[in-house]
Design a protein around this nucleic acid. Sequence first.
DNA 1: CTTGCGGTTGACGCGACGTCAAGATCTAAC
DNA 2: GTTAGATCTTGACGTCGCGTCAACCGCAAG
Lengths: 253, 253
Amino acid sequence: MSWSVSEVRRMSGVTSRTLRHYHHIGLLEPEDVDPGGRRRYGRRELRRLQRILLLRELGLGLAEIRRVLDDERDEVTALRGHLSTLEAERGRLDTLIETVRRTVDALEGDDVNAIRPEELFEGFDAGRYEERARSTWPEQWERARAATEEMSPEEADRMRAEAVERMERMAAHLRAGTPVDDPAVRAEVADLHRGLTRMWTPDAAAFAHLGRVYAEEGPWREVHEKVAPGLADYQRAAMEDYAHHVLAEDGER
Amino acid sequence: MSWSVSEVRRMSGVTSRTLRHYHHIGLLEPEDVDPGGRRRYGRRELRRLQRILLLRELGLGLAEIRRVLDDERDEVTALRGHLSTLEAERGRLDTLIETVRRTVDALEGDDVNAIRPEELFEGFDAGRYEERARSTWPEQWERARAATEEMSPEEADRMRAEAVERMERMAAHLRAGTPVDDPAVRAEVADLHRGLTRMWTPDAAAFAHLGRVYAEEGPWREVHEKVAPGLADYQRAAMEDYAHHVLAEDGER
DNA sequence: CTTGCGGTTGACGCGACGTCAAGATCTAAC
DNA sequence: GTTAGATCTTGACGTCGCGTCAACCGCAAG
């Protein structure tokens, strides 16, 4: 008793292409092939196909399925390994979904979540930092002061708005659990760095220091934390990573 | 101010291959290409790359990203669409994980979940059905009776064990939410059908009827429900589908 | 003899690149 | 000027599980 491709197709619902594929990769060989080259499947093959389909439905890859069926690799072990893969995947999806949802909310500007720059920087007093900046990098401080002085109010507003946008994007990375050395975060920090070069060009040490200043207790930190909890520290870590691995000459691999 | 491939790589962490890929598919064109053919990226391109990386991190495909960036397609709309895709995917994963977990439990034979055939068929009385079977298909009933009479006790045990295994597999399909016309379920039912042919060869009507008998109130149903709630009805549906679409000549497409 | 069915073997396509392989070009050292 | 070495280029194949043509072949019925 043996069955042709179309009979197997009718019985099991798999397409002939799938059967050919399984034959090709040696996962399911026909019982025999008649002189005309047509495949014939016996009872054993149908049982095997049945097991293949069950395991496939459970999400195992064909290579893994072959290992289970041929090497008689322990099915339970294989499935348990697969299970943790699946759970990790679901965890990834969970945070991804959460991140996308928040990003949508932020972009929508729901009035509730909307952060207006004026409000964010309200009561902001950089005075405390001026002193130190002036004494540590007097030249850069002078250039920065000159640059900000030349700015029109509209320009200043736009800069603040841009800063908020950057914070929002950074917060998205933070919520996604993206490591600080990920390309996307690197690109973001690189952009921040490029933005700063309009006033001065911080080297590795200065850039890392700036990150730490942002994260210190004080108005800078508050502004960041108002956008998202943990943002200040996250950004500091990202900036330090950038300083070490990108700006420092000896930091590259 | 422009940057070479390796500079961009250092800044953003993307590989040169990725940049070439994005160039190839027109997602990110270099600002210009010098006479030697080397790519150079400007500030605009870096900003674009940054947005690409953010959207990619949120799980969007490159085609979708291009649509958002070029046609200025609404970012929020795109993300919301994406969000529902992600949520559907997570739902799929949820049931998949649950199914795999239960399958592992069943295979492990945790003593707790182990269903011993003797126990399952304990107190089983097919007598109520014999009457009807004998009157409806007298010939087949006679063949079945003869076949079972010839069986050794070991054979009978093995048959019961096989029946339990089949029920377990069916239960896995049920819990996975697999539709009854899925290849994997078809293959399972086909196997059941082949098993029956050792005694007789039911046609479409008889096979569908057998499915309904299994699902009726009574010991057959109880045996199935003991393995998994809903199994009796699920199997009936699967058998009816098989009868209509596979066994019936006019049922195929 | 033709038509049609059911089967066959390639081969490309998908998505987002990784990974060689072979050659071209730029930079610094000699 | 030459040459080594770093950097960069363009192909092209591999991944995973098949879907989807395209072209052809053998067999039975009209």
